[in-house]
Design a protein around this nucleic acid. Structure first.
Length: 371
DNA sequence: AAATCGGGGCC
DNA sequence: GGCCCAGATTT
């Protein structure tokens, strides 16, 4: 195929059909960088409101470098992959100190920064500085695998390297920004994962998979193993002054450093209230808590590699009660803390009506069966 | 090379 | 319920 013609057709389409996105208003390296980190494994529609808010709060390298980590993570709350924002702030602080606040313009300097891998470095440097580098994300892998009918597993590093090498060869040196964004835009709008819109594709005439009629089964990707399952009772422990027990997760691993409600592992979170009450009571006895436990609804929360089934359990404590690693906080405190999404959901429901019996998420009747 | 790390939207 | 998303880091 003629790569020159492909590039020309792609760029012509991008000029007329590109979306108007907040981070495309200018090419400020810092804004581009923040957008690229937010967009890692995250859809455009999800990112937009977070991006606007984040740029209002931390409009410059200096603003983010000087902010407290707590405020920065709070601004990220709900976006997921929280190490992204901790790494981003660490990297921005390094830019502030070592590079006088100027985002470096070399691939080596960029990739040496925390949280900046080959994709993000290529994207920031091409979009903000016009450097003719590849920026291969999931969209580009899919587009190129179809374009060239690549049948190897795109999850393999070797396949990604092959695609990076190809894109590096064809990226036009005077339009690297538009070209890289055009490849991704095509993947997001036309060459989508399911049912690609080949009829309206501006580069369909260059596509080998399309010619062979196999575009729907590309790219090839190995199946991943099923997520681990864990069951917990989530505790709403309320003191008479209205405060609630919360605790901070360990400084490593899942949701590290974020706040959560106390949880105790149970055999089966969908078991009968009596069964749940018995198991939870056994754990809380260590803290001298023997009040009556009210067993509420079931929540499920899916992480990429982990699936939680949760059962809400509520009780009132005597003032002065302490236990475990938890502290008692009021609504004002909690507004400053960063919680994992599932705890936000449970807490919001609690805040809206602390007296209500927590219902099953979605309001369906509680089903007493294993998942 | 494989596992870890979030959450939402779509089918 | 599984899959995918403007991936990077750790093991």
């Amino acid at each position: 195929m003629d790569s020159q013609l492909f590039v020309r057709d792609l760029l012509a389409w991008y000029e007329t059909d590109k979306r108007d996105l907040p981070w495309r208003k200018d090419a400020d390296p810092y804004r581009v960088w923040v957008s690229e980190v937010m967009l890692q494994q995250t859809r455009v529609d999800t990112v937009i409101p977070y991006f606007e808010r984040f740029m209002d709060l931390f409009p410059t390298v200096a603003a983010l470098a000087n902010a407290s980590e707590g405020d920065v993570v709070k601004a990220w709350e709900g976006l997921g992959y929280y190490s992204r924002v901790r790494n981003l702030q660490q990297a921005v602080r390094e830019v502030s100190e070592r590079y006088n606040g100027i985002v470096p313009d070399s691939f080596e300097a960029m990739t040496s920064l925390r949280g900046v891998g080959p994709y993000t470095a290529g994207a920031v440097l091409s979009i903000a500085y016009g450097k003719p580098l590849a920026a291969v994300d999931g969209n580009v892998l899919r587009v190129i695998s179809r374009l060239h009918k690549i049948e190897e597993d795109i999850a393999k590093p070797a396949t990604k390297k092959q695609v990076e090498a190809y894109v590096s060869r064809i990226v036009p040196h005077d339009q690297a920004s538009a070209f890289n964004q055009a490849l991704m835009e095509l993947g997001a709008l036309v060459c989508t994962a399911r049912t690609p819109r080949c009829e309206s594709c501006p580069v369909a005439r260059h596509c080998v998979a399309r010619a062979a009629g196999c575009q729907a089964r590309l790219p090839v990707k190995a199946a991943k193993k099923p997520a681990r399952r864990e069951h917990y009772a989530v505790l709403l422990l309320r003191r008479q002054d209205g405060s609630l027990a919360v605790l901070q997760r360990p400084d490593k691993g899942l949701l590290r450093g974020l706040w959560q409600l106390p949880m105790v592992a149970v055999e089966d979170a969908v078991a009968s209230p009596d069964e749940i009450r018995q198991q939870v009571q056994g754990c809380l006895a260590d803290y001298g808590i023997a009040e009556s436990l009210e067993v509420g609804g079931v929540y499920t929360h899916a992480f990429t590699h982990l699936h939680w089934t949760l059962r809400v359990v509520r009780t009132d404590l005597l003032d002065g009660a302490t236990g475990g690693d938890w502290i008692f906080s009021d609504a004002m405190d909690r507004a400053q803390m960063t919680f994992g999404r599932i705890f936000q959901i449970i807490l919001q429901q609690w805040a809206s009506d602390p007296e209500s019996r927590p219902e099953r998420k979605g309001g369906e009747q509680l089903a007493l069966f294993h998942d």
